[in-house]
Simulated assay, not measured.
Amino acid sequence: MNTLSISELETVYDHLAAALDKAPEDKRELFLVKLALLSAEALGDPQRTTALAEIALIDL
């Protein structure tokens, strides 16, 4: 599995933040769900995807 450098993660974060800002406020949740599903499909591992969802819930 490939990992991203800190610089690459920062670039992805910046792009995601900008994309979220572009989404209409009442559609942001839908955008995030679509992004999660597209990411899960790209990852190709449903168990890993659900584990990542649990990790993302930590310290919200």
Rank of each mutant, 00 (worst) to 15 (best):
A36D: 04
L4M: 12
I58R: 15
R28Q: 10
E41Q: 15
I58Q: 14
L57M: 06
L38K: 15
L35P: 01
K22V: 12
A42T: 10
A51T: 10
A23S: 10
A42C: 04
L20I: 04
A40Q: 06
G44I: 01
L43R: 12
S7H: 03
D45T: 00
A42P: 03
K27F: 00
L35Q: 05
P24E: 03
T50N: 11
A56S: 14
L30T: 11
D21Q: 13
E10S: 13
L43I: 12
L57S: 09
D59E: 10
E10P: 03
G44V: 00
D26A: 04
A40L: 01
D21E: 11
D21S: 09
T11H: 11
S39L: 08
L4E: 11
S5V: 00
L9K: 13
K27H: 02
H15M: 13
P24M: 02
R48V: 04
L43K: 09
L4F: 14
L35V: 05
S5A: 01
A56E: 03
K34W: 10
R28C: 01
D14W: 04
H15G: 06
Q47K: 13
R48F: 04
Y13H: 14
D14A: 15
P24Y: 03
R48N: 00
L30P: 01
E29C: 08
M1Y: 06
L4V: 05
T50D: 05
A36M: 04
E41D: 12
L57Y: 06
K22I: 08
P46D: 08
A40S: 05
D45E: 02
E29K: 13
Y13L: 13
L32A: 14
L38W: 12
I6H: 06
T49S: 13
E29S: 12
A19E: 15
D21K: 07
L38A: 07
R28L: 02
F31Q: 11
L37C: 03
E29A: 09
T3A: 15
D26Q: 03
L20Y: 07
A42N: 10
L57E: 12
I55H: 09
I55N: 05
E8C: 00
D59A: 10
L52E: 04
A42E: 07
L57D: 09
L57R: 11
L9R: 14
L38Q: 11
E29R: 09
E10D: 10
E8G: 00
L43H: 08
Q47T: 09
L35M: 14
A17W: 04
I55C: 05
E41P: 05
I55G: 02
L57C: 05
E29L: 09
V33E: 12
L57T: 12
A53G: 08
L52V: 02
A19N: 09
